[in-house]
């Protein structure tokens, strides 16, 4: 939350890259997210009135890119949804919706990709597909993937694992190799 500029801290400083989040106002934080952070939610949060293509195009449009729709198409094809561009969220399965959400998060090419329990609402097989997709994207783009999960095995697959309990960091391990 703090990393994505969604929550403000009561004290201290928050630096992401060269930017001081604690000094930004609401709108600056929104622009920071548009620029640098992609978020994938547990319950997808697609806009129900928009097609898959339009959903992915929104952050690109917000950042004023002229090729918003072409980029969105490329991103959707990359997550294997090239044949579902004009479908509305209600016409997509859970796994497909989450893939749209990943495409949307990746489209502006953020330096940080945050995923909050991205597989929590999916069955095991679909969940695995989604994770693979995210790890591949991270590897290909060189972005930082921050994954919030209760799945120990999944956490073990990451470069660095931070365990939190009641708001406190209880463990911080740099290990493992991406699958």
């Amino acid at each position: 939350m703090v990393l994505a500029g969604l929550e403000r801290v009561d004290g201290g400083t928050v630096s992401v890259g060269n930017e001081r989040l604690d000094r930004m106002d609401e709108d600056d934080l929104a622009r920071f997210r548009g620029r640098s952070v992609g978020i994938v939610f547990q319950s997808f949060h697609l806009m129900p009135t928009m097609t898959a293509l339009e959903n992915v195009a929104v952050p690109l449009e917000l950042s004023g890119r002229r090729d918003a729709f072409e980029r969105a198409r490329v991103e959707l094809e990359a997550v294997g949804l090239g044949h579902r561009l004009d479908h509305h969220p209600a016409e997509l399965s859970g796994g497909e919706q989450q893939r749209v959400a990943i495409a949307r998060a990746l489209a502006p090419e953020p330096s940080i990709l945050i995923a909050d329990e991205p597989t929590g609402n999916l069955d095991a097989d679909t969940g695995r597909d989604i994770i693979r997709l995210m790890f591949e994207a991270r590897a290909r783009r060189g972005a930082t993937l921050v994954l919030v999960t209760h799945d120990r095995a999944l956490a073990d697959a990451c470069d660095r694992r931070i365990v939190m309990r009641s708001g406190e960091i209880v463990e911080d391990v740099r290990a493992g190799v991406a699958p």
Binding site: E26, A30, R31, R33, I39, T49, P108
Partner: peptide
């Protein structure tokens, strides 16, 4: 929807 828009970078 509003929250999602803001999450992907739309100012209030």
């Amino acid at each position: 929807t509003i929250a999602t828009l803001k999450a992907v970078g739309a100012p209030g």
